[in-house]
Design a protein around this nucleic acid. Structure first.
Lengths: 339, 339
DNA sequence: AACCTGGGTTGAATCGATTCGACAACGAGG
DNA sequence: CCTCGTTGTCGAATCGATTCAACCCAGGTT
């Protein structure tokens, strides 16, 4: 069931079949129909490897995901889903590579083996070995997130710095003077995870600008870690009346800790942050938060990558997202200190 | 940077380089070292497409996932992660295909384009077009979940029927007489989603066997659907004192509804079911539940697929999982009706 | 009638590997 | 000294497509 078989049955040469398939040269209507009939009858589709070998491109994108050991966050999952879907719309397949460290066989296979036309990286560190590795290679790539020095690469990212700053300003406007930042896990931040650092930078700057007291703490990416972190915060810093967070997975725990301490949201305590819509809406009361537009970002990453593949020498582009902060009902004026 | 380049630099023929790479023929130690040095220096790796073309196998597995539009459940995500990781351990890559319906370009590309050596399907319906399609083709495949007539295919699945039956028996032993089943969404069940039907079958049988009153209801896969379904259940069937569920995503909603109605778990109402450990442990109080072993199942699916690829004519194998029901604290004796 | 034109088709080269059969070199055995 | 067997290396065919240059032929020009 190869192209030769089709050619034989249709009584033409292999090249003619190929031209019917690609439409790159005119083929007379009668022959075209005859060939097409054979193709339809046998449900023939050209061997993807042979085609890739000759054409020099695979019609496949690589997507490097964090290794499965650590469960993917909802946000990461959103990126994967949207990248895969955007690629499918462009008739491209997606090859997955679970790669954490630098010396990863799967990652190397994808980069050097010419298995893909380009790569999308996520979970970017400020200093990222995979990015350096890809920069050295010829392979076009786009990052979701960005390194400390992103110039010269194509990327999409969320402006955590600006978003957290705006959250702080919002809380300050409401009269809060002691504000906490619930960051991602200590390991992630220590490893140079970009959003963690940028959120902290935005927090620190806004806190200083408004003359507030800011407490920042790291917190594992799950409910129980959130509960523990929040409980500790409430006892060590009882004067804190509001928190901003980029750790959506900790939200249920934060909620439980506040309930356990008898603090009613938003009357006694305000919470705002960056979180996927469904986390925000599952919070009680619904969380005032910016929603990371994973769907758009994944699609945009694919679009940027396709550009880069089409014109590898053109100047790389990027896109920084500033999603709006949806006002829901988890933030209110600070409780009066006279009581 | 192809094999010819290596051969030239090492002053040998292309075949000798190939033999060094594969070790399929003896190569004298001096030549071997000389060639290896060139390979290391240039960081050469054979072109995966050329190799696949010649060898007739791609060292790639296809994984068909539900289309991204509907967010993947935690369980599905667990399967994806474990499949990818198990494949990586075997030095295989994974090609993703988001395919819901039958006539899907991405799915067809994978099946007919010889892009993969085998396919893993998930989210299997009792009658599944994709399974029929794959059966017709030559391509080895394994399903996570099973059709109504799984004979002749390799599969892994969880014994929802047995698990739910055991949940019902457990509740009956505790004295509950009116029990509800919170199933997956109505659309899913209507579409012939296996676990939904099998859970219902197990529920019905156990309820009859123990002479209980059983109420079964469908419920969307998220917290708010769970809340709505549970609220409705509590008002329409106030005598129900326990529920079994296979809908983990609805658990937070179920919890909220019970709290809102003032029913204390497990004193006034018992909940048991099948749910990933982290859902069960986030329930208050922790949920007595069986945990679907997604990690093992994904790895086993890959193992079965590799068997099938190695020996396509051998009898297919399967594996049905009966994970233990972990006793936590969400089930207690039925409240006494005298009150 | 010879010449051109151009649409339609084909043969052959090519992509980058693998692998088989052939062959050269060399030591051992008769 | 000749033959035989081993060991190591090479040339050429092959996998299944794409694509270029060449060619054929019908129809229109001169």
């Amino acid at each position: 069931m190869n192209i030769g078989e089709i050619a034989r049955r249709a009584g033409v040469s292999r090249s003619t079949v190929s031209y019917v398939l690609s439409g790159k040269r005119a083929v007379s209507e009668p022959t075209r129909q005859r060939i097409q009939a054979v193709i339809d009858e046998l449900d023939y589709r050209p061997n993807a490897n042979a085609r890739a070998l000759k054409e020099g491109r695979t019609r496949t994108l690589g997507l490097v995901i964090p290794p499965a050991s650590q469960r993917l966050t909802d946000m990461q999952l959103g990126f994967v889903a949207s990248v895969v879907e955007a690629a499918a719309r462009a008739d491209l397949d997606v090859l997955l590579s679970p790669s954490g460290g630098d010396h990863d066989r799967s990652f190397e296979r994808i980069v050097t083996g010419r298995r893909v036309d380009g790569v999308i990286l996520m979970e970017i560190r400020l200093e990222d070995d995979r990015v350096t590795r890809l920069r050295r290679s010829r392979l076009p790539f786009v990052t979701i997130g960005r390194t400390a020095e992103p110039a010269g690469t194509s990327w999409v990212d969320v402006d955590y710095e600006g978003l957290i700053a705006r959250c702080v300003h919002h809380l300050a406007d409401l009269g809060h003077r002691h504000i906490a930042l619930v960051n991602r896990s200590a390991e992630l931040v220590a490893a140079g995870y970009g959003p963690g650092h940028r959120a902290l930078a935005g927090f620190a700057e806004a806190v200083t600008e408004r003359g507030l007291t800011g407490i920042d703490l790291c917190c594992g990416d799950d409910a129980s870690a959130g509960e523990a972190a929040m409980t500790r915060l409430l006892t060590t810093h009882p004067d804190v009346t509001a928190a901003a967070t980029i750790n959506e997975a900790a939200l249920p725990g934060i909620q439980r800790a506040l309930e356990a301490e008898g603090r009613v949201v938003p009357r006694d305590f305000s919470v705002v942050g960056v979180a996927a819509a469904h986390w925000a809406e599952d919070f009680r009361p619904p969380l005032t938060a910016a929603d990371v537009p994973t769907l758009d970002m994944g699609a945009e990453a694919v679009a940027l990558l396709l550009e880069r593949i089409a014109a590898p020498t053109a100047a790389p582009r990027h896109r920084l997202y500033h999603p709006p902060i949806s006002l829901r009902s988890s933030a209110a004026p600070a409780p009066s200190p006279l009581r």
